[in-house]
Simulated assay, not measured.
Amino acid sequence: MSIDLNTLDLRELNTLIRAAQDRHKALTQRQPAEKVRRKLTALAKQTGYTIEELFGPAADTAALKSKPARRKGPKIKPKYRDPENRWNTWTGRGKMPLWLASKIRFGQTPTDFLIPGVAKLTPKEKVLTGKRKLFKQS
């Protein structure tokens, strides 16, 4: 955070200094969170409760420290590339990027931008309605 002090007048500077001193005083006078957490746990245990019973399962100290890591999927190779700008790529998943959408709007097709040797067109699912299947009987 940066504040341009050159644009502030004397009254605004004094107000800023007072607010900073009040905040500093409040932060230095309060106890560390870990110490308060230990006191609350001890008091709950003394009265026959657990922190989870009082505040729910999210009050576990491990849950307060960090969230579980989000699972990332595998790295997907790009399927489409812009010939004018090689950094414009798309994997074919998610929303179509603006560079590709604008080119399609002007008459080109997505197959014009397939990366040769890497990408293949995704085949459409064949509709099997009305076709007979033969089953071998044993």
Rank of each mutant, 00 (worst) to 15 (best):
P32I: 02
K72Y: 07
A19H: 07
D4V: 00
D60F: 01
D9H: 04
E84P: 02
R70W: 03
R81C: 09
Q46V: 09
A58R: 12
Q108A: 15
W90H: 11
D112A: 14
D82A: 05
T7G: 00
G130E: 02
L98F: 01
L16E: 01
T28Q: 08
K79L: 09
K136A: 05
Q31W: 00
P83W: 06
L98G: 08
T89R: 10
V118P: 03
K67C: 04
G117K: 08
K45T: 13
G94V: 13
Q46M: 13
N85A: 09
K126G: 10
T129E: 08
S2M: 03
A69G: 07
V36D: 05
G48P: 10
G48K: 09
A26C: 01
L100V: 04
W90R: 06
K39N: 10
A19D: 12
P116F: 10
L128R: 07
T47D: 14
W99V: 04
I104R: 11
G48A: 11
P116M: 06
A20K: 10
L27E: 12
W90C: 07
P68K: 11
K65D: 14
L134N: 06
D112L: 08
P78V: 14
G92Q: 05
Y80F: 15
T89W: 04
A26M: 08
A59F: 05
A20R: 11
A58G: 05
G92Y: 01
G107K: 07
L114T: 06
N88F: 07
R86Q: 13
A62M: 04
L64A: 12
G117Q: 08
A62L: 06
F55D: 01
P32C: 02
D4Y: 00
T41L: 03
T89Q: 13
T122A: 13
K120H: 12
R23T: 08
P123C: 12
D60S: 15
R30N: 10
Q31D: 02
R93C: 08
A42D: 01
Q21L: 15
D60Y: 02
K126T: 14
D22N: 10
